[in-house]
């Protein structure tokens, strides 16, 4: 942004060296990722692999080696691209964004934090210090997938799913979608409809039409709204199906 002179800050603070901002740790509330956690570190983290394996799966889609080495969780969240992986992950995982400002600390849910493409509810004096990923009931299965024009490009559409099965029925279903709205969204109608239904591929298939309800993606230089919408049920089926397999494996 600065290289194009789209942003010309008078002061720029380098937070790269603040000790502890890049830590991934287990807390009483779940898992906390410091703002400076690099994509590559998240992909390698054993703690994340054990608890939220979808993170590593998603990180494989983030840009390329050198970008994954430098790019951070907070950078991705604050950039608030509706196609990006981290906004989708915190939306899917009911994460909380931890913010430090002149008035002290606060947290924001993804719905509160992401206002529009490239717009967040951050004040100028605020800083994202990390994210909390709350624990989820186990065993569950997760899966991530996306369609991009080339390897590492921003997703045309991205989807992440979390599925928990009890007694052969969906006890919990979460489906997050990126690239189809101003922000990452959850497919609430599908989640509600599937919960309690028999945990089968057929049930997933029957629910897919609900994924595109209320979605109004935009046409842009990369893809038409119609193409994006066509991908939603396809990716939803793929991630829900894989998550189901993993939940019952």
């Amino acid at each position: 942004m600065m290289n194009f002179r789209l942003v010309q800050p008078k002061r720029l603070v380098d937070i790269n060296r603040i000790a502890g901002l890049g830590r991934i740790e287990k807390t009483e509330r779940g898992i906390r990722l410091g703002a400076l956690t690099r994509h590559a570190e998240a992909a390698r983290s054993e703690l994340l692999a054990e608890n939220v394996p979808i993170v590593a799966e998603a990180m494989a889609h983030v840009a390329h080696v050198a970008i994954r080495n430098r790019g951070t969780v907070a950078g991705s969240l604050c950039h608030a691209d509706p196609s990006a992986e981290w906004p989708l992950l915190v939306t899917l995982l009911d994460g909380e964004i931890e913010i430090l400002g002149g008035d002290g600390r606060r947290t924001a849910t993804p719905a509160e934090f992401f206002l529009a493409p490239l717009v967040t509810d951050m004040e100028e004096t605020e800083l994202v210090t990390g994210i909390h990923l709350p624990p989820h009931e186990t065993p569950c299965g997760m899966a991530f997938d996306e369609v991009a024009q080339r390897a590492g490009d921003f997703a045309v559409v991205a989807a992440g799913a979390l599925v928990r099965v009890e007694d052969g029925r969906f006890a919990e279903v979460r489906l997050g979608l990126g690239g189809v709205s101003d922000t990452s969204v959850r497919a609430a109608a599908l989640e509600d409809a599937l919960t309690g239904r028999p945990a089968t591929a057929e049930a997933i298939e029957a629910s897919l039409a609900l994924t595109v309800e209320d979605l109004e993606p935009n046409d842009d230089v990369h893809a038409s709204a119609a193409y994006r919408l066509s991908l939603v049920p396809v990716l939803s089926r793929r991630v829900l199906g894989r998550a189901l397999e993993r939940a019952t494996a």
């Binding site: 290289n3 720029l12 380098d14 050198a66 430098r70």
Partner: peptide, 13 residues
């Protein structure tokens, strides 16, 4: 020891 894009970094970093 880690690859980085030198066009996306400032010299001060």
């Amino acid at each position: 020891g880690v690859s980085a894009r030198s066009c996306l970094m400032l010299a001060v970093q």
